[in-house]
Design a protein around this nucleic acid. Sequence first.
RNA 1: GCGCUUGUAGCUCAAUUGGACAGAGCAUCUGACUACGGAUCAGAAGGUUCGGGGUUCGAAUCCCUGCAAGCGCGCCA
Length: 560
Amino acid sequence: MMEAELTRAISGALERLGVHVDPSRIGLERPSRADHGDWSSNVALVNAKAAGQAPRDLAQRLADELATADLPHLERTEVAGPGFVNVHLSPSWLHEVLEAVLDQGTERYARHDLGAGQTVSLEFVSANPTGPLHAGGGRWGAFGDSLARLFRRCGYDTVTEYYVNDRGTQMELFGRSLAARLLGEPVPDDGYHGQYVAEWANELAAELRSGSASGEDDLGTALDALGGEAYAASWGRGRALRDVSEALEAMNVGFDHWQSENELVASGAMDGAIGQLSDAGWTYAQDGAEWLATSKFDDTKDRVLRRSDGEPTYFLPDIAYHHQKFCRGDRAIDLVIDVLGADHHGYVPRIAAAMQMLGHPPESYEAIVGQNVTLMRDGKVIELSKRTGTMVEVRELIDAVGPDVARFAFLLQSIDSRQTIDIDLLSAQAAENPVFYVQYAHARIASVARRAEADGVAPRPPAGTDLSPLTGDRELALLRALEVLPSVVAIALRERAPHKVTTWVRDLAAAFHGFYHDCPILHSDVSPEVRDARLCLTEGTRIGLAIGLDLLGVDAPEAM
RNA sequence: GCGCUUGUAGCUCAAUUGGACAGAGCAUCUGACUACGGAUCAGAAGGUUCGGGGUUCGAAUCCCUGCAAGCGCGCCA
């Protein structure tokens, strides 16, 4: 808001100086150093050459012109460094920010309409339904879910989805492994060897026994009666999905849509897609297989759609799936996003190519590729292996440290950077996890509110409280932190970087703890005017923390 | 070999995407209210932003190059 007014003022001042700059290209930022003012612009620096003036000269004339402009809260302007124009405002501008925070509350503050009228589909996790979710998968759950929350807060109609690869070789192997365990036979070499397979086989056995009329039939015939390995596979699919969804639910991650590959194929979507591709002339036959000319786009080579034995590769249903994501139900999706691990990045060019062949504009499909998680236990890397069955389940991680610590840990750093999680180290240091620092700030505020209510002073910050007493360094720092939230939300969305919210929420908590330490609120020697203003600031902070923690999918506790 | 991603304090990571003196948390050291919740606060120490060139008012960020790490390069998924 202030930013828009400043842009307008600078633009007007430049016009009066005869320098024409597109308002959208006027750079404005909040300086990191307090003595550089509240806002700073580098327009003079950037446009000096075009204006034919020395940067500092232009800056000085702009600063002078700006000083005479009708700009609310303006205290003074100055030129600094190579040609920055720094703007110093009176604290009243931050008091207005706090008023807006209190007025708009958790629902409306830092909410944008950037995506009004647009729909987005976000797919993430989509781990094969052949076992429990690996702890590394938690990163995609936390990231995808928080990104979806950012999209929603920015006004996008958002659908989250999980693709269930319940068809093909891996499912067959899974069913065979489960059946083998059930019958006490050796698990195939390339099958699933994890401990969970044995446990699930026991569950299946119990179901088979209780389902059979006599209760004594041998398991082999009971299983065969239901469909043998195929039944084991489909039973196992359901068992795995229940496990996965419960684990994600525990981390506060949910999906709007679970898309089964089997159902997709059965619906004829795959045939429709391949028909459309061949009609458009993008397919060709070679060596008995059917190919898609993805190299006509960014892909390095063409890809097989249908093997020479007639079976579709995984790629074909995937195309059909992505194609239909653009038109789920009765509404068109403007943007389809896949969140993928680095081990799948090679897959992006081919699916992007296929989407363009099907008539979707290039910018309507986006792949976010994140780095995988390395899991450690007591300082040693754990390689997950289907063969030996070694893995760490998210469930174990959540059980060990709790959902908030786990989720915060996943969202602590950029998705571009590799993440190492040592489950022992994280457990041992769970109490020092930064999430508690933030939650503690929220709980403290709740505690202050309770105390204030018990004391009968200002049950809640009354509207129209005079905020002008808020001029101390700690108070201003806290106000500044609050002021930034709307742009943090917008930037985090634009950069697809939920971790920026994590960084911000820690900053806000730090500013609050500092304020709380130095600025008594309810002490008897605090005047009612100061007390009320500080109560307002406290409530505003609570709103900011609640918004940030909600975006991160982490609880904002009233007490700890 | 080619491609994608990454390289920042002892460790784990940030850095308003080209801005001013690169910041936090752990870990180390030193301090702080008769507690509105000490799960807090203040201070100290810690840096050739992997090396080398370049672009410009200005580079951790962009370009070139070298080094190192992870991942990918199937009629597997």
